[in-house]
C-alpha cells in the first residue's frame, strides 16, 4: 500500500475554445478493415477497366450498380458487363460538400443510364463545364490507370 502514490503528470493539454460553457477540442479517428464482401468483383472489374452490373438469374432485371440479390424477386444475380457508353439521366454541380470533398469542389455528379439496363449508376463527369452538361447527353466511361478500389476509379467524359 502506498498512500503517497501519484499519477505521473504529462505535457499534454487541451485545446480550449470557450470557458462558459467549457468547449474543448475532442479528436476521434478510426481505421476500418472494410470488406466489399460479395460486391468485391465490381471493384476488381474497375482495375480491368470493366463496369460490372448485376442481372437477376430468374427475372432478368439488370442493375447498373451491383447487388448480390435481386430487389424485385429476391433471387441471386449474376455479374454482367455494362456498356461503357451511356447517357446523363440527371446531374448537379456541387459547390459545397462534406469535409472530405471540399477541396474537390466544384465537381459535377451524374446518374448514368445505359441502354438495356434497368437502373442507374452514380459517377462524376469531367471534361464538361457545369453549364455544358445536359440530360440525355452521351457520355463514356474512363478509368484511373492506378486503381484505388473505390467507385471513383471510374468516371465519365462527354462522348
Amino acid at each position: 500500500m502506498g498512500k503517497d502514490a501519484k499519477l505521473p503528470e504529462t505535457e499534454e493539454g487541451s485545446v480550449l475554445f470557450n470557458l462558459d460553457p467549457i468547449i474543448v477540442k475532442y479528436h476521434y479517428e478510426i481505421d476500418y478493415l472494410h470488406s466489399y464482401a460479395q460486391d468485391s468483383p465490381f471493384f476488381a472489374g474497375l482495375a480491368k477497366k470493366k463496369l460490372l452490373g448485376s442481372r437477376c438469374t430468374v427475372c432478368g432485371y439488370t442493375y447498373a450498380t451491383p447487388r448480390g440479390h435481386c430487389m424485385e424477386c429476391g433471387e441471386p444475380t449474376a455479374w454482367v458487363e455494362l456498356p461503357l457508353e451511356g447517357k446523363v439521366h440527371t446531374y448537379t454541380t456541387c459547390h459545397f460538400g462534406g469535409e472530405a470533398f471540399l477541396k474537390e469542389t466544384p465537381y459535377t455528379l451524374i446518374l448514368v443510364e445505359f441502354d438495356g439496363i434497368d437502373t442507374l449508376f452514380l459517377s462524376r463527369i469531367v471534361g464538361a463545364e457545369p453549364d455544358e452538361v445536359r440530360i440525355g447527353m452521351p457520355v463514356r466511361a474512363r478509368f484511373l490507370r492506378n486503381c484505388k478500389f473505390r467507385p471513383t476509379d471510374v468516371y465519365f467524359v462527354p462522348l
Binding site: 440527371t90 456541387c94 462534406g98 474537390e104 452514380l122 467507385p151
Partner: peptide, 27 residues
Amino acid sequence: NEFIALASDTNFDYPVGGFYTGYYAMM
C-alpha cells in the same frame, strides 16, 4: 455534411462525392 452523407451507401454513393444537397439537386 459528411456525417449525414454517411447515411448513403458508403461503398457506392458516399465516396463519389457524397453530399445530400447534391443528391436532392439531381432528383
